[in-house]
Amino acid sequence: MAEATNQNPQGAIESTVVDWSSDQTVFKGVPWGKAMMWIFLLSDTFIFTCFLVSYMTIRMTTGAPWPEPSLVFGLTVFGMNVPLLLIAIMTFILITSSGTMALAVNMGYRGNKNGVFWLMLATALLGLSFVGMQAFEWSKLISEGIYAWENQMEAAPQFGSIFFMVTGFHGLHVSAGVAYLAIIAFRVRMGKYDKKGYDIVEITGLYWHFVDLVWVFIFAFFYLW
């Protein structure tokens, strides 16, 4: 069905021109909420990219040494220092939550209300555990003397500043997403969307996948670079 509505015989350019010059709606078959969420995410992309560009500029201009991420973010397990262990776990949790969210959207369009509820709840719980691990990671860094304004490693003070700011802003997004997911999940269970359809699950999903997407970039630029 979806394949039929969304695939079109023309090429990409022609189809774009036809859609943009058509009557009433530009994005054919896209509910208002979904259009709005996409545009919001575009705006949010600009926020995160401005953060990352600032990070790049500051790291390129500082004369002070920049710490080795795999040493800073290591975790000691059974007396062995495993670099990036916690981050790896966090990454896998977030990807898992993205997977459950994608399944929830799928269930929504199949009309499986229970499936949607439990999958969204699982996503929210995974998100919550991500935030918990981030809190653990922060407290561990702080206990090792890495603060937002300075650090005891003779490294550039901006290392802590930019790290706490960007991961904190991402963490806020995750927390907001957890609340958003929980609310929508319970409203689905209450049957608020039986008539309107389950577009809202997909819209929530867009937001959640975006949070995961941002983490992909943070993971690469903060922990691996």
């Binding site: 394949e3 969304n6 079109n8 943009w20 994005f27 054919k28 996409w38 999903g205």
Partner: peptide, 12 residues
């Protein structure tokens, strides 16, 4: 895939 962009129309 997860955000379904592959299946959206080119306009979006």
């Amino acid at each position: 895939v997860f955000m379904h962009m592959k299946w959206e129309r080119p306009a979006l």
